[in-house]
């Protein structure tokens, strides 16, 4: 188990992002699967939303928080198992890499609808 400032900060941010994600994900899910329920989403409908900076901001924040919460959560699971220092560093590197790739690809998807 790790101790210290980094660990406490990770715990705290995990709680805060979790609470914000709770509202964000509920909204995201209800919007697509309940309020606007229908089969399939068309490209034009998606573009109608993603043409506004407000929605792009909302999705970027949601994406970033989801990735951070997920990767930090996985790190929390790994740090429960007293792994060797080197293994832990490799896992941390992979988590950063995956998070970075997801954020970049997700971000490009969000701005892709505008072109």
């Amino acid at each position: 188990m790790e101790t210290g400032k980094g660990r406490a900060l990770s715990w705290f941010i995990q709680r805060i992002t979790g609470l914000i994600l709770g509202f964000g994900v509920m909204f995201h899910f209800l919007m697509f699967h309940y309020f606007g329920y229908k089969v399939g989403l068309t490209f034009l409908e998606a573009r109608d939303r993603l043409i506004s900076p407000g929605w792009i901001t909302f999705y970027t924040v949601l994406l970033g928080m989801a990735i951070f919460h997920g990767m930090n959560g996985l790190w929390g699971i790994f740090s429960d198992y007293n792994l060797k220092r080197k293994t832990k560093e490799q896992i941390e590197f992979l988590l950063y890499l995956f998070g970075f790739i997801l954020f970049i690809v997700g971000g490009f998807i969000l701005i892709r609808f505008n072109v």
Binding site: G40, L41, T42, F43, L44, A46, A66, I67, G70, M71, G73, L74, I77, L102, V105, G106, F108, I109, R112, F113
Partner: peptide
């Protein structure tokens, strides 16, 4: 469930990345 969400996040972004291949591929 947490681990499942990380896997789902990859699937979700992979699905939506079809937008790079055009509107028809996306739908």
């Amino acid at each position: 469930t947490g681990i499942a969400f990380v896997i789902f996040l990859f699937l979700h972004i992979f699905t939506l990345s079809s937008v790079f291949r055009g509107p028809e591929a996306f739908e």
